[in-house]
């Protein structure tokens, strides 16, 4: 059964002073809370986050820049290991964080579909079976046999979205993905997300586009400096915000 259980999740990491003679890099992470002084500074990126999602849920993550939305998505995906608390994710997960990530600029769109499929753990037969569907949905037509670097931002986004959703994820994590693509494709993408959710999947979507979240999600998790400010039903949140 597809589900996500997050209980008292915290993510704290140390800002390392690298052993280097070069001038210290004073850039600090954009989010979370910074604690400690001098050589040992810690960033509390997430603090005591708890929520549960069941099949069919579409959760919208909202909050200011640096509130922890992307970090939470990356913990759910398994890129960051939680410092404390527990994260239980049941179901096949795919994520759309960065449009060009995982795509090779020199390779054709078709070859990139194969590579992405392999990275998702699919074998060649499974990839071949879905190839035409991905190409058709992306509306790339003959461009699919041209190198990825010749694609516009919108075309790249369409291919990324098509690949991520055609490989039948049970849980889809998305970070501000919908900025690219024309309105027609955005409608199509929204429909596919609804289909995914109807197929008893879970969608977690981080966005600043409140209109989109109202249309797409049924639950809203509001984050502030790494902590949960509120977990609302989308209708309640839409009327109060």
């Amino acid at each position: 059964m597809v589900s996500i259980h997050v209980s008292n999740l915290s993510l704290v990491y140390r800002l390392r002073e690298k052993l280097t003679l070069a001038k210290r890099d004073r850039r600090l992470p954009t989010g979370g809370r910074l604690e400690g002084k001098g050589r040992t500074q810690y960033v509390t990126a997430l603090d005591g986050v708890s929520f549960e999602l069941a099949a069919g849920d579409r959760l919208g993550l909202v909050g200011a820049n640096g509130a922890g939305k992307t970090t939470l998505l990356k913990v759910l995906y398994g890129i960051y290991a939680p410092t404390s608390g527990s994260v239980e994710v049941e179901g096949r997960v795919d994520a759309l964080f960065n449009i060009s990530l995982g795509f090779r600029r020199e390779a054709t769109g078709r070859r990139n579909i194969v590579l992405r499929g392999l990275m998702n753990g699919w074998n060649m037969d499974e990839i071949e079976a879905r190839m035409e569907d991905v190409i058709e949905f992306s509306e790339l037509g003959d461009f699919i046999d041209l190198p990825f670097k010749t694609y516009s931002q919108g075309m790249a986004a369409r291919l990324a979205f098509s690949v991520a959703t055609s490989l039948d994820p049970e849980i889809l994590l998305m970070d501000e993905w919908i900025g690219a693509g024309d309105p027609k494709f955005q409608d199509k993408a929204r429909n596919r997300m609804s289909e995914l959710a109807e197929k008893a999947g879970i969608i977690v979507l981080a966005s600043h586009n409140h209109g989109l979240l109202k249309k797409t999600c049924n639950k809203i998790l509001e984050l502030e400096s790494g902590s949960v400010k509120g977990l609302h039903l989308a209708e309640e949140w839409a009327t109060s915000s």
Binding site: G78, I79, N98, G102
Partner: peptide
């Protein structure tokens, strides 16, 4: 870096 920060490979 981009792969390590964006995928679970």
């Amino acid at each position: 870096e981009s792969f390590i920060k964006g995928t679970t490979l």
